[in-house]
Design a protein around this nucleic acid. Structure first.
Lengths: 131, 131
DNA sequence: ATTAAATACGACTATTATAGTCGGGTATAA
DNA sequence: TTATACCCGACTATAATAGTCGTATTTAAT
């Protein structure tokens, strides 16, 4: 309940690590060794973040990743949804093929809570975590 | 990400249903039929809530459940944790056998967010959802 | 040129958590 | 005594997450 996925954990750990290194490049191996993260898994996450332009990738020998400068102002909501897709406490707030949509008696109150949570996450910047 | 389990959904739907019926008993079958919830699964959830004294169980033919009067002031945090166990964004905020506890560079900021979320859930009463 | 070290990426398997089922038991009103 | 309800633990199925593997590409250094 309410737990971050490993992917998000790894992503945040990596971002924070890169933040401390400024312009210097970090490699997948370096990070996976340091924090005991499965290398291939971290690699995929870093690749995804590079595609999303959270980080810059430098290819080839002596390559690596560095954090994208304008990244810190991103909200946690956007970050999570970029990496994992839409978040919502109940599916009907995301997709609408629930068999009981009309019957469901908790949709409105739950959706209100959902909005509350989203707005909290939206006020938290990535930099609050990786600072 | 951030999704309620079916068990919690079913529990909330059932509570809300019972709330509308005041002192009248509701049966598992009645609720599972009405909201298209697998009966056996709902049954287990209602039994658990009865053990936790969120609802009163009346056994035997013509039996059923009714909502426990003092229930509405319970916080969402307590409710969720009673039904599903401790909640936390990362495991280390719950158990402490993570292999990288000391190395981990995101624990503190994440735990701060965690506390924020918990306090939000704590300010929400069950009655806000089942009212 | 060749090699070594890095990113890129899709397909695959394994593990775990959630969801759902089943069988047998107990309580009680009619 | 029967029908209908709650009670409960063990089991299976499904889906989501986590992790692995193979292969290709890029680039610095030799």
């Amino acid at each position: 309940m309410l737990k971050l996925t490993r992917k998000l954990e790894y992503a945040l750990i990596a971002l924070r690590h890169m933040q401390t290194k400024g312009e210097l490049l970090s490699t997948t191996k370096e990070i996976s060794d340091m924090y005991t993260i499965p290398q291939e898994l971290l690699a995929k996450t870093l690749q995804q973040m590079a595609r999303l332009e959270y980080i810059d990738a430098v290819q080839g020998s002596h390559g690596g990743y560095r954090i994208h400068s304008s990244m810190s102002k991103i909200s946690l909501t956007k970050f999570i949804e970029d990496l994992e897709g839409p978040m919502g406490m109940v599916d009907c707030s995301v997709a609408s093929d629930c068999i009981q949509l009309n019957n469901c008696n908790i949709r409105q109150p739950i959706n209100r809570i959902n909005d509350n949570i989203r707005s909290i996450f939206s006020r938290i910047n990535l930099s609050d975590i990786t600072h």
